[in-house]
Design a binder for these strands. Sequence first.
DNA 1: AATCCACAGGAAGATTAGGATA
DNA 2: TATCCTAATCTTCCTGTGGATT
Length: 408
Amino acid sequence: MATLQQTLDGVGLFESILKTTPIFKNKEALRHSYTPSDLPHRGEQTNRLATILAAALRGETPSNILIYGKTGTGKTLVTKFVAKELEKTGEKIGVPATTIYMNCEVVDTHYRVLAQLANTLYGQEVVPFTGWPTDQVFQAFFDIADKKKQVIVVIFDEIDKIVKKSSDEVLYNLTRINTDLKNARVSIVGISNDLRFTDFLDPRVLSSLGQEEIVFPPYEADQLKDILTQRAILAFTDGVLDETVIPLCAAFAAREHGDARRALDLLRVAAELAELGGADKVTEAHVRSAKEKIEQDRVIEVVRTLPSQSKLVLYSIILLEERGNGGVITGDVYNMYRELSRRAPMDILTQRRVSDLISELDMLGIINAAVISKGRYGRTKEITLGVPITRIKELLEKELSFSNSNLF
DNA sequence: AATCCACAGGAAGATTAGGATA
DNA sequence: TATCCTAATCTTCCTGTGGATT
């Protein structure tokens, strides 16, 4: 230890960092994936879910369940928690209950769902990523499932994704599978962010899937405060948080549909900023900068994943805004856009389409586009940028020149 | 009051990409 | 593997319109 200390003193780089008390004790406790042993303000939902699934332990088939709630309301956490408890208890009392968790953002096709189910039950890669006919995969899953008497609880997280991306056919098959199974029983838990996603569902699937429904309401500000306090005790060294920090994080997150993830992110990023700046306490100012940073990162990410035509439209708007002779309107943007795509060269879209792209950028919150009338001089959209441009401009120049170098 | 700009934004058809199906 | 389907993207053509100007 002494030699290490000497080395550091010699280099001097880490000196100041080591002198201050570290802010984090255990950063893991702030991650989304961290499962605390106690879930504040979700007792009611936990109990409902456990009560329904308890049927599995009595050897009956639990009702299928649909769980609704916006992002960061604890749906996934509660479900995973209950699922784990169910397996644990099942093992203890000798009633086999298997739970399979699946995130439909990743596992998003009919084939992949069945392959994942089969492979989890076999405990190894029996079904390859691709290649088999879908009904053969279904048969493989069916066979392994029915080998022994057991209840299989399949959890579809973000179930709305799979319905939108492919179809509800898998769900239909799974809801009917119990009539053919001799030993095993399958029940389904669907988790959805989208409250209206049942509109897209086949009514036959819906009636079977929605036997029970559990709603997770957004957290109130003081509930968020409790959650943050619970995590903060684990995550931080005592006394590094100003007392205004947690209430402020909670208030910001409550304003955005009571998202606990957002609240935790704010707290974590604020503390990281404090650490980076060499501060020994996290203050209100850090929370405010954290809010800005998170927002910027979000925008950067959105811009990065934009289709290239939209990027070019956005770049045109930025150039015009910088030039700064008054309000930017659709016609100007289109002329600039056409000039740029001609030079690129890229396909040139019609003004009608570009107008829609501008509206989409508006929806994403990157720009503000308001329809105004300039009287004799027509009706148009007046466009202003909704976010600071420097980082976006750099990003766009990098990405657009990657595909061609004639633009700049 | 009438005109008319510069688009907005709806409808419908064409084109295209990627997944489903045989 | 080929081709069939579907949903998303894009075009063409269109009607509608707030208000400064005449």
